[in-house]
């Protein structure tokens, strides 16, 4: 095997190996026959239904055979599509999406399968779909189905980055499928079921980031009185709730780095001194409960260094902050010796 992940090593006797070899010989022969047949068809550039079926056969055994996926698409483009009505094309692509769905169940991390789905989706023709006369009907139905598939895959493995990437791709390509609010709810649900799931925190940061970029809160000057003020306070409320949300995770398990990383994102560059000081207080409060929490201490150093950027403000006492950083860093060297050098480097930069 070229690449094994999580396959236990077992000691195999020569006899057992020989038995396995004999047993596999027929399978190897069968596979090689399919393989040679497929490559011969591809070389001859025939694009018939029977060629298509040959790709189905071999891909059902080996979904990583990218050349067979390529050939399959060539058959679509050069053989099947030109001879078909849009409804038939939609039918073809839908059944390919169904086939690859079954493959994903067994091979959730094969790039080529995800990639083929993407290609299929993008080739769905204009047409009515199930509910009437819209030209986008077929497409909408297929994108909806894709969303369902991506989320099913995330139910099975909430860290599968293929599924997350694919989901982002669907939302970006077909924005009406999910509002930003839907997205926030989805990430919240994922985080609530397991807040070690950094993939969900990450996605949440992307959704909120995109929302705040386009909400008037960041460009109030351009907008008019009431509405911008209203939007601004709405946004502040959302941010405040977000801090409460992440705080609850930090307190529940201060040893889980996912929430700490998100917390860092939420504070960002620390431009808002009030927020920065408030969050430092939150961490110090937690530190009283958990004096040996590495993430508490490391975050405290990070945020206090951000605080030093505001050294011109009267509330910022530089030497006291530096002292507290040195204290935390010294403690970190002791409780986290693996990364000792990093703490020493930061100390020397203070």
């Amino acid at each position: 095997m070229v690449s094994n992940h999580n396959v236990k090593r077992t000691r195999v006797s020569p006899e057992a190996l020989e038995a396995k070899r004999l047993k596999e010989l027929s399978k190897v022969k069968e596979y090689l026959a399919l393989n040679d047949d497929l490559l011969a068809r591809k070389r001859s550039k025939t694009y018939r239904k029977e060629d298509f079926e040959a790709t189905t056969r071999i891909l059902s055994i080996n979904p990583e055979f990218y050349t067979a996926w390529n050939y399959r698409r060539e058959i679509f483009l050069n053989g099947l599509f030109p001879a078909s009505t849009p409804a038939q094309i939609d039918e073809f692509l839908s059944s390919d999406l169904d086939m690859t769905m079954a493959q994903l169940q067994r091979h959730p991390k094969v790039y080529w399968i995800w990639n083929h789905r993407r290609w299929c989706l993008e080739h769905v023709p204009e047409g009515p779909g199930e509910d009437g006369d819209s030209r986008e009907g077929w497409r909408r139905d297929n994108w909806n189905k894709e969303m369902f598939v991506a989320e099913k895959m995330l139910d099975r493995d909430p860290r599968n980055f293929h599924a997350w990437n694919y989901r982002r791709y669907i939302v970006a390509s077909w924005p009406s499928i999910r509002t930003k609010d839907d997205e926030l709810k989805y990430t919240k649900k994922k985080i609530q079921s397991n807040f070690s799931n950094f993939s969900a925190w990450h996605q949440r940061s992307k959704v909120l980031g995109a929302m705040w970029e386009v909400t008037p809160a960041t460009r109030t000057e351009q907008d008019e009185g009431m509405s911008s003020h209203h939007a601004h306070s709405c946004c502040r409320l959302i941010i405040l709730k977000e801090f409460e949300f992440v705080k609850s995770a930090l307190w529940t398990d201060p040893g889980d780095q996912s929430a700490w990383i998100y917390h860092r994102w939420l504070i960002g560059e620390g431009d808002d001194l009030v927020v920065l000081q408030r969050e430092i207080d939150v961490i110090e409060e937690l530190l009283v409960e958990e004096p040996d929490s590495k993430w508490c201490l490391d975050s405290l150093v990070h945020f206090q260094r951000l605080l030093l950027q505001h050294k011109d403000e009267s509330s910022v006492d530089v030497s006291s902050i530096q002292q507290r950083c040195v204290f935390a860093l010294t403690k970190l060297e002791a409780i986290d010796p693996k990364r000792k050098q990093r703490y020493q480097d930061i100390k020397s930069q203070l």
Partner: peptide, 18 residues
């Protein structure tokens, strides 16, 4: 590499990388 192994043939698409 053992060419009698099905796994060998199933990973042909990675041969050059290997």
């Amino acid at each position: 590499l053992n060419k009698d192994d099905l796994a060998y043939h199933l990973t042909a698409h990675l041969r050059l990388n290997a």
